[in-house]
């Protein structure tokens, strides 16, 4: 088991393995998204309160879920990098940040567009879910700015890992904000006690979209980590040999 992880953490091994695995994440991801989008837009019944506007859920919820998952990947990888000094872990953390920021941006904008017809406003500063999600976007920006500001990669890795770990508090706040405080935002729908509070015709496309987005995120992350590994290892022998080999990469 440890041998497997040790081998996986080896940059040349990961670089080659990620190139093979990434398409295996992308294809099921795209198929699931195609199913989820079609079923969500055209087959799912209309919501009795929100009408067809509820269909925004099929892009908003997967984006919001990925905004939190990407942050947790970034923080856990940063933590692993700090404790076990694993170079690959820092590369994963660095690669996850721009993707996390992109999905947080999507969650905020799609949520705002959904809020306009349902709440009568694009934004509500007093709402804990909205505000904490915006803070999450700023945490991603801060993380990327910090990395960019430090030239020494090892120092940048350490400083950004500490920032990522501190920011986990906000992830917890985002997740539980709708339970802890009164909010314009609706409460938990999927992770509710007693099971999801949704009609199966609405639920299955949503699960398809969440799973599809997760696979697609996995594919994008693997490809970004590959680039990060290549950049960090640019002065090593295996990179030189790979580039000079007839196959290249």
């Amino acid at each position: 088991m440890w041998k497997f992880f040790h081998r996986l953490a080896s940059p040349p091994h990961f670089y080659r393995l990620a190139a093979i695995i990434a398409p295996w994440f992308a294809v099921p991801g795209l198929l699931l998204i195609a199913y989820g989008a079609y079923a969500g837009l055209f087959l799912a019944p209309m919501d009795y309160q929100q009408g067809d506007a509820f269909r925004i859920i099929y892009v908003h919820v997967p984006s919001a879920y990925l905004s939190l998952m990407a942050y947790m990947i970034m923080a856990v990888s940063g933590g692993i990098g700090l404790i076990w000094r694993m170079k690959l872990a820092h590369a994963v953390a660095a690669a996850a940040a721009p993707l996390g920021a992109a999905f947080t941006f999507l969650a905020l904008v799609t949520g705002s567009i959904w809020g306009r017809p349902m709440w009568g406003t694009w934004w509500e500063w007093g709402d804990p879910r909205l505000t904490s999600e915006l803070i999450l976007l700023f945490l991603y920006f801060g993380y990327m700015a910090l990395r960019g500001a430090i030239d020494d990669t090892a120092k940048a890795d350490k400083a950004s890992a500490v920032l990522a770990l501190v920011g986990v508090v906000n992830v917890v706040i985002v997740h539980f904000s709708v339970e802890w405080w009164s909010s314009l935002h609706q409460g938990q729908t999927l992770m509710k006690k007693g099971g999801p509070a949704m009609d199966p015709g609405m639920l299955y496309p949503l699960l398809g979209m969440i799973l599809g987005f997760t696979f697609l995120f996995g594919s994008l992350l693997l490809r970004r980590v590959r680039t990060e590994v290549l950049f960090r290892e640019r002065r090593t022998r295996w990179v030189r040999e790979m580039i000079l080999s007839p196959e290249g990469s």
């Binding site: 989008a37 837009l41 209309m46 009408g51 067809d52 506007a53 269909r55 925004i56 099929y58 892009v59 908003h60 984006s63 999507l106 904008v109 799609t110 567009i113 959904w114 306009r116 017809p117």
Partner: peptide, 16 residues
């Protein structure tokens, strides 16, 4: 048309 919510729904899917 999405029951007059088309602009909201399609803009979210397009942006994504």
């Amino acid at each position: 048309a999405m029951g007059n919510y088309g602009i909201y729904v399609w803009s979210c899917f397009g942006l994504t």
